[in-house]
Protein backbone atom coordinates (compact mmCIF):
# COMPACT_ATOMS: atom_id res chain seq x y z
CA UNK A 1 0.00 0.00 0.00
CA UNK A 2 2.77 2.41 0.94
CA UNK A 3 4.61 1.75 -2.30
CA UNK A 4 1.37 2.49 -4.16
CA UNK A 5 0.99 5.77 -2.31
CA UNK A 6 4.58 6.58 -3.11
CA UNK A 7 3.97 5.89 -6.79
CA UNK A 8 0.77 7.93 -6.72
CA UNK A 9 2.67 10.95 -5.43
CA UNK A 10 4.68 10.97 -8.66
CA UNK A 11 1.74 10.38 -11.01
CA UNK A 12 1.21 13.36 -13.24
CA UNK A 13 -2.20 14.93 -12.68
CA UNK A 14 -3.85 17.41 -15.00
CA UNK A 15 -7.28 18.35 -13.66
CA UNK A 16 -7.80 21.10 -16.24
CA UNK A 17 -6.97 18.59 -18.99
CA UNK A 18 -9.44 16.09 -17.50
CA UNK A 19 -12.22 18.64 -17.44
CA UNK A 20 -11.36 19.78 -20.98
CA UNK A 21 -11.54 16.15 -22.11
CA UNK A 22 -15.02 15.87 -20.67
CA UNK A 23 -16.09 19.14 -22.29
CA UNK A 24 -14.85 17.90 -25.69
CA UNK A 25 -16.92 14.77 -25.18
CA UNK A 26 -19.92 16.93 -24.27
CA UNK A 27 -19.53 18.77 -27.60
CA UNK A 28 -19.88 15.44 -29.42
CA UNK A 29 -23.02 14.80 -27.36
CA UNK A 30 -24.26 18.21 -28.48
CA UNK A 31 -23.80 17.08 -32.10
CA UNK A 32 -25.60 13.79 -31.40
CA UNK A 33 -28.66 15.49 -29.93
CA UNK A 34 -28.23 18.57 -32.13
CA UNK A 35 -28.80 16.53 -35.30
CA UNK A 36 -32.08 15.32 -33.86
CA UNK A 37 -33.09 18.82 -32.78
CA UNK A 38 -32.46 19.96 -36.40
CA UNK A 39 -34.64 17.13 -37.68
CA UNK A 40 -37.33 18.00 -35.14
CA UNK A 41 -37.36 21.68 -36.08
CA UNK A 42 -37.66 21.02 -39.82
CA UNK A 43 -40.42 18.41 -39.37
CA UNK A 44 -42.26 20.73 -37.02
CA UNK A 45 -41.87 23.59 -39.50
CA UNK A 46 -43.39 21.38 -42.23
CA UNK A 47 -46.16 19.85 -40.03
CA UNK A 48 -47.23 22.55 -37.55
CA UNK A 49 -50.84 21.32 -37.05
CA UNK A 50 -49.96 17.64 -36.68
CA UNK A 51 -47.26 18.47 -34.10
CA UNK A 52 -49.76 20.61 -32.22
CA UNK A 53 -52.38 17.83 -32.15
CA UNK A 54 -49.85 15.12 -31.22
CA UNK A 55 -48.19 17.18 -28.46
CA UNK A 56 -51.56 17.63 -26.74
CA UNK A 57 -51.52 13.91 -25.94
CA UNK A 58 -48.37 14.17 -23.85
CA UNK A 59 -48.91 14.61 -20.13
CA UNK A 60 -47.62 18.11 -19.31
CA UNK A 61 -47.87 17.42 -15.58
CA UNK A 62 -45.54 14.39 -15.74
CA UNK A 63 -43.22 16.36 -18.02
CA UNK A 64 -43.09 19.32 -15.62
CA UNK A 65 -42.63 16.98 -12.65
CA UNK A 66 -39.73 15.23 -14.41
CA UNK A 67 -38.19 18.62 -15.21
CA UNK A 68 -38.31 19.51 -11.51
CA UNK A 69 -36.76 16.12 -10.63
CA UNK A 70 -33.86 16.57 -13.06
CA UNK A 71 -33.20 20.18 -12.01
CA UNK A 72 -33.12 19.08 -8.38
CA UNK A 73 -30.76 16.20 -9.23
CA UNK A 74 -28.44 18.74 -10.87
CA UNK A 75 -28.54 20.72 -7.63
CA UNK A 76 -27.65 17.69 -5.48
CA UNK A 77 -24.84 16.79 -7.90
CA UNK A 78 -23.35 20.30 -7.64
CA UNK A 79 -23.76 20.24 -3.84
CA UNK A 80 -21.91 16.90 -3.61
CA UNK A 81 -18.85 18.55 -5.19
CA UNK A 82 -18.95 21.48 -2.76
CA UNK A 83 -19.29 18.96 0.10
CA UNK A 84 -16.17 17.04 -0.94
CA UNK A 85 -14.30 20.33 -1.43
CA UNK A 86 -15.18 21.14 2.18
CA UNK A 87 -13.91 17.64 3.14
CA UNK A 88 -17.40 16.50 4.19
CA UNK A 89 -17.26 12.98 2.78
CA UNK A 90 -20.53 11.66 4.24
CA UNK A 91 -22.49 14.73 3.07
CA UNK A 92 -21.00 14.34 -0.41
CA UNK A 93 -22.00 10.65 -0.45
CA UNK A 94 -25.50 11.63 0.72
CA UNK A 95 -25.90 14.15 -2.12
CA UNK A 96 -24.57 11.65 -4.69
CA UNK A 97 -27.04 9.09 -3.38
CA UNK A 98 -29.90 11.63 -3.65
CA UNK A 99 -28.85 12.32 -7.26
CA UNK A 100 -29.11 8.62 -8.12
CA UNK A 101 -32.50 8.38 -6.36
CA UNK A 102 -33.81 11.35 -8.38
CA UNK A 103 -32.47 9.78 -11.60
CA UNK A 104 -34.36 6.60 -10.76
CA UNK A 105 -37.48 8.64 -9.99
CA UNK A 106 -37.17 10.26 -13.42
CA UNK A 107 -36.94 6.84 -15.09
CA UNK A 108 -39.92 5.47 -13.12
CA UNK A 109 -42.01 8.41 -14.38
CA UNK A 110 -40.78 7.76 -17.92
CA UNK A 111 -41.76 4.10 -17.53
CA UNK A 112 -45.34 4.99 -16.57
CA UNK A 113 -45.51 7.64 -19.29
CA UNK A 114 -44.33 5.26 -22.03
CA UNK A 115 -46.42 2.25 -20.90
CA UNK A 116 -49.57 4.43 -20.90
CA UNK A 117 -48.76 5.45 -24.50
CA UNK A 118 -48.02 1.83 -25.51
CA UNK A 119 -51.32 0.80 -23.96
CA UNK A 120 -53.14 3.20 -26.31
CA UNK A 121 -51.28 1.80 -29.32
CA UNK A 122 -49.12 4.90 -29.66
CA UNK A 123 -45.65 3.55 -30.37
CA UNK A 124 -43.57 3.26 -33.57
CA UNK A 125 -45.46 0.79 -35.75
CA UNK A 126 -48.46 0.75 -33.38
CA UNK A 127 -51.89 0.34 -35.01
CA UNK A 128 -53.41 3.46 -33.46
CA UNK A 129 -50.42 5.61 -34.40
CA UNK A 130 -50.30 4.32 -38.00
CA UNK A 131 -53.95 5.32 -38.48
CA UNK A 132 -53.02 8.95 -37.91
CA UNK A 133 -51.54 11.66 -40.12
CA UNK A 134 -47.88 11.36 -41.21
CA UNK A 135 -47.00 14.46 -39.15
CA UNK A 136 -48.19 12.81 -35.94
CA UNK A 137 -46.21 9.65 -36.77
CA UNK A 138 -43.13 11.85 -37.21
CA UNK A 139 -43.79 13.60 -33.90
CA UNK A 140 -44.04 10.37 -31.93
CA UNK A 141 -41.08 8.86 -33.78
CA UNK A 142 -38.95 11.84 -32.71
CA UNK A 143 -40.48 11.76 -29.22
CA UNK A 144 -39.49 8.12 -28.66
CA UNK A 145 -36.01 8.44 -30.17
CA UNK A 146 -35.09 11.69 -28.42
CA UNK A 147 -36.57 11.03 -24.98
CA UNK A 148 -35.38 7.41 -25.28
CA UNK A 149 -31.79 8.43 -26.01
CA UNK A 150 -32.03 11.00 -23.23
CA UNK A 151 -33.36 8.31 -20.86
CA UNK A 152 -30.38 6.11 -21.79
CA UNK A 153 -28.12 9.02 -20.81
CA UNK A 154 -29.93 9.30 -17.47
CA UNK A 155 -29.32 5.59 -16.79
CA UNK A 156 -25.63 5.85 -17.79
CA UNK A 157 -25.29 8.97 -15.63
CA UNK A 158 -26.80 7.18 -12.62
CA UNK A 159 -24.36 4.26 -13.09
CA UNK A 160 -21.42 6.70 -13.33
CA UNK A 161 -22.51 8.47 -10.14
CA UNK A 162 -22.81 5.07 -8.41
CA UNK A 163 -19.18 4.41 -9.38
CA UNK A 164 -18.28 7.88 -8.03
CA UNK A 165 -19.97 6.97 -4.73
CA UNK A 166 -17.72 3.91 -4.51
CA UNK A 167 -14.65 6.04 -5.34
CA UNK A 168 -15.67 8.54 -2.65
CA UNK A 169 -16.28 5.80 -0.08
CA UNK A 170 -12.90 4.19 -0.84
CA UNK A 171 -11.05 7.49 -0.61
CA UNK A 172 -10.12 7.68 -4.30
CA UNK A 173 -12.13 10.89 -4.56
CA UNK A 174 -10.92 13.23 -1.81
CA UNK A 175 -10.89 16.89 -0.85
CA UNK A 176 -7.70 17.41 -2.87
CA UNK A 177 -8.51 15.07 -5.76
CA UNK A 178 -12.13 15.30 -6.86
CA UNK A 179 -11.80 15.82 -10.61
CA UNK A 180 -13.55 12.48 -11.31
CA UNK A 181 -16.62 13.68 -9.43
CA UNK A 182 -16.43 17.03 -11.23
CA UNK A 183 -16.37 15.46 -14.70
CA UNK A 184 -19.20 13.07 -13.74
CA UNK A 185 -21.08 16.19 -12.67
CA UNK A 186 -20.43 17.89 -16.04
CA UNK A 187 -21.95 14.88 -17.81
CA UNK A 188 -24.94 14.92 -15.48
CA UNK A 189 -25.59 18.64 -16.02
CA UNK A 190 -25.47 18.17 -19.81
CA UNK A 191 -28.20 15.53 -19.49
CA UNK A 192 -30.16 18.17 -17.56
CA UNK A 193 -29.62 20.83 -20.26
CA UNK A 194 -30.84 18.46 -22.99
CA UNK A 195 -34.03 17.88 -21.00
CA UNK A 196 -34.43 21.65 -20.50
CA UNK A 197 -34.89 21.84 -24.30
CA UNK A 198 -36.78 18.56 -24.79
CA UNK A 199 -39.47 19.52 -22.27
CA UNK A 200 -40.86 22.68 -23.94
CA UNK A 201 -40.35 21.30 -27.46
CA UNK A 202 -42.38 18.14 -26.88
CA UNK A 203 -44.75 18.91 -24.03
CA UNK A 204 -45.56 22.59 -24.43
CA UNK A 205 -46.59 23.11 -28.06
CA UNK A 206 -49.63 25.36 -28.14
Amino acid sequence: MSSQEHAAAHVHRDDVGSRMGMWLFLFTEMLLFGGMFFLYSIYRYMNPEAFHVAAKELNTLIGAFNTAILLTSSLTMALSITAIQKNNKSLSLFFQFLTILLALGFMVNKYFEWTAKFHHGIYPGGEELLSRSPGEVLFFGLYYVMTGLHGLHVVIGAVIIAVMMRFTAKGIITQTNYVKLETAGLYWHLVDIIWIFLFPLFYLIT
Partner: peptide, 12 residues
Amino acid sequence: IKSYLVLQIFMH
Protein backbone atom coordinates in the same frame (compact mmCIF):
# COMPACT_ATOMS: atom_id res chain seq x y z
CA ILE B 1 -31.66 31.29 -19.85
CA LYS B 2 -31.97 28.05 -17.86
CA SER B 3 -29.10 26.47 -19.84
CA TYR B 4 -26.97 29.56 -19.29
CA LEU B 5 -27.47 29.29 -15.52
CA VAL B 6 -26.63 25.56 -15.54
CA LEU B 7 -23.52 26.13 -17.69
CA GLN B 8 -22.21 29.11 -15.71
CA ILE B 9 -22.93 27.95 -12.16
CA PHE B 10 -23.56 24.19 -12.01
CA MET B 11 -20.95 23.41 -14.67
CA HIS B 12 -18.52 25.95 -13.15
